[in-house]
Amino acid sequence: MTSFRQMLASLKADVRIIFEKDPAAKGLVEVVLFYPGLHAVLAYRLAHWLHKQNIPVLPRLVAFLARFATGIEIHPAALIGKNFFIDHVMGVVIGETAIIGDNVLMYQGVTLGGTGKQLGKRHPTLGDNVVVGAGAQVLGNIEIGNNVRIGAGSVVLHTVPSDCTVVGVPGRVVYQGGKRLDPLAHSQVPDPVADVIRDLIQRVDELEQRLASPPRPLSRTTDEYRNGLGI
């Protein structure tokens, strides 16, 4: 009974977090009826509860029907915390041994997958307050720390410490110096490749300016240099 009450509490939190994360959410009826991300999470909560009761087949059936209806595949055995929100949905895959903390925001096309046929823990663990951008792939038995932002399209294959940002293929860690960013402001995700290109362009501009400027006159004449060298 306690587990069932916890599931209901998680369901309420999942509905409430949508209004905090999605500025397009206008009302409770609209969210409940027309948000497939919420439908997928609700189906997962039910399937996970059935899985914990050791009921065979039925949890996978619920997950299968939810996948057919929403385009999101969440294994019933995955562990997902409170306030979980998938925005825009479609193409999200969450593997069997994945663990997701509280207040996690995920966009479409994200995969929390494995990298082989090994048994045991083979999917990622996400901490609290993590944002995973559209199309990101987080693969293998790795840990993503708290307050981490994973940029859209990134492929993360290694453990990521807390309070940083990951971008690129393969994913590279970019520290933010403790500055807290708006989780919805994707334009604030840094691009280290673009930073390098900007530095190179600036360097080329400086060299061109030096080449275009007239040469400095020598402080000594040519004859003086020759005399000094004994020529």
Rank of each mutant, 00 (worst) to 15 (best):
R172S: 15
V104D: 15
G127L: 03
V110E: 07
V104S: 14
P124Q: 12
V166T: 06
H123E: 03
G177H: 05
L119H: 05
T115N: 12
T125D: 04
V167P: 09
E143V: 15
A136P: 03
V138N: 00
I99S: 14
E96I: 14
V131W: 01
R149F: 13
P161Q: 09
L139W: 01
A152L: 00
D163R: 03
V166Y: 03
V131Q: 03
N146G: 06
Q137W: 05
A136D: 07
S154L: 11
L112N: 10
T159P: 13
L119G: 10
G113L: 10
G178K: 08
I144E: 03
L112S: 06
T115G: 06
V166D: 02
V173W: 14
T115S: 06
N103I: 13
T125M: 09
R149W: 03
V174G: 02
L157T: 09
A134S: 15
T165C: 11
V156M: 04
G109L: 14
G153N: 10
G151Q: 02
K117M: 13
M106N: 04
V130T: 03
V104N: 14
S162K: 14
V169Y: 04
T115W: 00
N147M: 15
C164D: 08
G114Y: 07
D102G: 00
G168W: 05
G168N: 14
G140P: 06
N146M: 10
A134P: 04
